[in-house]
Design a protein around this nucleic acid. Sequence first.
DNA 1: GATTAGCACTCGACGAGCGAGAGTGCTAAC
DNA 2: GTTAGCACTCTCGCTCGTCGAGTGCTAATC
Lengths: 340, 340
Amino acid sequence: MQIDERKIRILQAIIDDYILTAMPVGSRTISRKYETNLSSATIRNEMSDLEELGYLAQPHVSAGRVPSTKAYRLYVDMLLKDHGKHQPGQEDAAVRAYFTERVRQMENVITSAAQAISEITRYTAVVMMPKQLELRISCVQLVPMPRGAALLVIVTDSGILRDTVIHVSEHLDADALYAISRMLTERMAGHTLGEVQELLKSYTRRAGPDAQVMQGISELAAQMEKQASADRVTVGGSHNILNYPEYSDVEKARSFLAVLETQDKLMQLIRDGGATFTVRIGPETGLPEMQDCSVVTTSYAMGGGHQGAIGVIGPTRMPYGRVMQVLSTVGKALTELMNE
Amino acid sequence: MQIDERKIRILQAIIDDYILTAMPVGSRTISRKYETNLSSATIRNEMSDLEELGYLAQPHVSAGRVPSTKAYRLYVDMLLKDHGKHQPGQEDAAVRAYFTERVRQMENVITSAAQAISEITRYTAVVMMPKQLELRISCVQLVPMPRGAALLVIVTDSGILRDTVIHVSEHLDADALYAISRMLTERMAGHTLGEVQELLKSYTRRAGPDAQVMQGISELAAQMEKQASADRVTVGGSHNILNYPEYSDVEKARSFLAVLETQDKLMQLIRDGGATFTVRIGPETGLPEMQDCSVVTTSYAMGGGHQGAIGVIGPTRMPYGRVMQVLSTVGKALTELMNE
DNA sequence: GATTAGCACTCGACGAGCGAGAGTGCTAAC
DNA sequence: GTTAGCACTCTCGCTCGTCGAGTGCTAATC
């Protein structure tokens, strides 16, 4: 048996309705709401065919039909084909506004992006920031704090900054700290985090008034390098999942949330699929805990040819079109932001 | 009728068992596990008295007893009285280690603290950072970025830092930016955020090569002031609540999580209760959504006489002793950190 | 040959009814 | 004051029967 144009139309209607209601769809529903010129009996025959072809499943004999993974696959593939002629949707401007509104600080782009996406889509969002080797120091600054403490700030050329509190001699006043900062910046600017650590090894060995400072820098640099040398991933709106009836079981919700807290599983979920959209449906995610979920991802460009990824995780029953629209808009905005 | 020492002992046993199991406690359980020299019948009589006194309730006639709000109140008040002689518990060192391990960066103390507390206690943690009027600028720094962009960083004396990306003239190289940074810092250091904004108003009006920079500073300062002038509160481990059977109903869990996302309700929950411990049990929280929850809070000292608050939210059935122990330890550590 | 009306059939949801078990309250004895 | 004994109550889990949604099949119609 072959799938023809009418079968596809009906399948689409079933998926649309199921996405809306999360309830098995009956033949009468389709005949009344979508294909008004066909009787329920006809739809029934078509549905029976579609089931035989593997696109539909019945939870039990007297329930309506539910789309299978294969059906979603078809549905998404059709969407993806259309998506080339991505018309800047009605929502586009709103999404963009909402997103840029939220992302102000360089340091928090990732987090803000995840939050924005999750709030717009009402699903769970993940944003991945690729590892950055070769992070170069741009500026080192000691900021005076009360009682012999100082805030040590290191800024890199890509706008990542870290700080930590260190102890310094009480004799050093603001001017002295400033002088040290200038000296440090001059000496370290342009060097990678690794080089700086290497450079400082000799210092820390011989004791001296600056030893504290140098050790602080060394530690902070090490920490920054460690953080930057791994892909980092943030999650936004993790408990949006509770809004959907497929997760009205707390146990399921918990195992879902557990996955989100496991870095490497999360990585596996949004592992890069190329420049354009990737959609993993149900079992395609590769995680048994995510059987009923789909993951839609796309990428954004960081400087230096690196690629980050953003994605949405939700029930397989997801308005893929809308989600892709949002992701695409945010992805573009992120790319611009990173390279502006 | 009066409550005597034995009644209290029995009540305590009931509460302890209920905290452990979350199941109504029967007379036989107490007689076997806690008061082995008394028969279940005796316990039954005592329980009947305790119920009359308002300390116990029965979900239904043939179920065991469940402690009432009043019972928890008594229990907690006794704990609080004992807590003066706060023996540095066995866990103390571990908690402290775990906490300091997590809190490295000044900028993220609040978030890290919330996470640490929630991970240690397995409940939901809230950390409040009091508003800071009079935030003084300590340092302004422009860090070169590719293609006519620069990262503007402002650091305040209390270690808060914010950054934003601004456009600058392409003619300005690293040295020039550094010179500007020095000039800016010299001029602004020691001034409050408000003053700086005032100061800059004149600048932004007359156009010039620096107008971009000045406007950037002004905007960032405004943003920082806005953020700092309100009490800020962060939540950690929000979905720990799903681990407890009283929230096995998704609807309840959702309304719980909704409260956590509402700043002012959250504020209301941990609004300061003085230097020492405050425990709000069930209805005492003042929020109908939190009927079955208790909130334990304590405070930590920031510089300048300001007080922040940290707290734990969990089911009324909570090991109050342990929670207070943890909060006390973390509170002290925070105070030290803030004033070191 | 495709579409449709009609009808028997299937199966889950829901409520009623029942027995088992847990735990109580009361009484009488110690 | 404490305890053993017993009748009583109420929930939980089970089965059973009814209701309704939705199907598949057949025969009639376009």
